[in-house]
Design a protein around this nucleic acid. Sequence first.
DNA 1: GTGAATGTTCATTTTGAATTGAACTGGCAA
DNA 2: TTGCCAGTTCAATTCAAAATGAACATTCAC
Lengths: 168, 168
Amino acid sequence: MPELKEDGTRDALTEIERRSIAIFVDGVRVLGLPGSVGEIYGLLFVSREPLSLDDLVQRLGISKGSASQGLRTLKSLGAVRELEVVGVRRTYFEAAAELKPLVGGFIREQVRPHLESGETKVMALQEAVNRETDPAVRGFFDERVERLENWMRRGRMVLPILQKFLGQ
Amino acid sequence: MPELKEDGTRDALTEIERRSIAIFVDGVRVLGLPGSVGEIYGLLFVSREPLSLDDLVQRLGISKGSASQGLRTLKSLGAVRELEVVGVRRTYFEAAAELKPLVGGFIREQVRPHLESGETKVMALQEAVNRETDPAVRGFFDERVERLENWMRRGRMVLPILQKFLGQ
DNA sequence: GTGAATGTTCATTTTGAATTGAACTGGCAA
DNA sequence: TTGCCAGTTCAATTCAAAATGAACATTCAC
């Protein structure tokens, strides 16, 4: 059930807002993040004024829970800036729209952890292969493990290149 | 319900097979592909003999439907080679384990389509913005659209760099 | 302090993607 | 021709991730 303002109405999204949201919902889905994160970022991206959590809840018709969790994710990625206004309790958010920190945040939060868990798993495979004694079989498995290690190495090396290229 | 051999048994996976599968299930999940695709590739990757669809069904305990669909995906990515043996109807598969074509296949099948649909959406946003008349508002939206176009451009440009770096 | 406003957490529900499995297709063999 | 084998398709089911919303903090205002 969509959340409504106290008067029971809800400001409809403009076409521009809807199109921006559509772009980022798709974008974050590709990156493996939930759609609500894309909705929030997409709306902030075309907002001239910063928005509060309650603004997001009302305009997007999502739950407070989703908005809170989505904002947490965006903060961890460095994709939103938090604006503390003196004398006002509510915190406001705006989109951080510079590519470099976005790419950096994504690599740090999403890519590196996966790479690392992959490396752990390859090491475990390596050990299982070391227990193999038949030399013919062993040669084949060694080649496979070596290949995986090579892929991992390239994965690690490509990240700084990506950052350099996409940053600024 | 897992598929069984006619005698009701099923060859258990070796530790090496299980570890390889675990690596690739994770790997393909990150890329947004279903886990069964990772299971199939993971098993093929450490198989010294090519395997048939029925072999995969039996060893992995997945349905014929999953195996068929998974193999189709892997073929489209160029991640498996099909071996036609003369006089034998069954077709056999082996893992294509060279990084370059894998990266190329992934970019062609998964990345480019998303990039293109993104570009279409940005164009639609552009048009909506063009209908905006208030000059102050217009300036802000123009800057946002320009930024998106810049991101798309970089996305397109980074692909060949990735390919060059990961290929060979 | 107390109450109201803001935001978080998490058990439950919902939703959509993955998987199943039965029906089907196409081709080969006898 | 008939029957069988290998593989595909797709409607129905299952399952995991996302979203909800009510209960729970926290903090500010008075």
